[in-house]
Write a protein that binds this DNA or RNA. Structure first.
Length: 110
DNA sequence: TCAATGACCTGCC
DNA sequence: GGGCAGGCCATTG
């Protein structure tokens, strides 16, 4: 891997690490913040490697607040457990009060 | 180098 | 209002 290409991943990791405790965001928001709104899939793809890093990937969900990537975690219910541990209410893989818990990096980090 | 993949998003029927 | 299909871009084999 070239450092240049890795920068995109690192960029994603850096944003995810800045997500406050008990807050969640979406892949699209991160991609948009990075200037690649159409690369939302890449954000999720980057998350695949993020499990090796210290990245709270469980705070990143899709636009609907659904835990679509929970299957990629070590445990199926691990992602939900981590979120609930932070005070986030998750019902049937769906984050409750997603609008309130939603954290927009472009809006907070600017 | 070419082709296939993916933890998504938006638009159309 | 709900469901289906296409597209986008970077990474990997």
């Amino acid at each position: 891997m070239k450092p240049e290409t890795q920068s995109f991943y690192n960029r994603v990791y850096d944003v995810v690490r800045q997500i406050p405790y008990g807050r969640v965001t979406s892949y699209g928001a991160i991609a948009k913040y990075l200037g690649a709104a159409r690369s939302s899939r890449l954000v999720g793809y980057a998350m695949n490697n993020s499990h090796d890093k210290e990245v709270p990937a469980h705070r990143v969900v899709n636009r609907n607040g659904l835990l679509t990537g929970k299957h990629h975690f070590k445990g199926i219910n691990l992602m939900q457990q981590l979120l609930e541990n932070e005070g986030v209410v998750v019902t049937n893989d769906q984050i409750q009060n997603f609008d309130q818990l939603y954290w927009d990096p472009a809006k907070h980090l600017s």
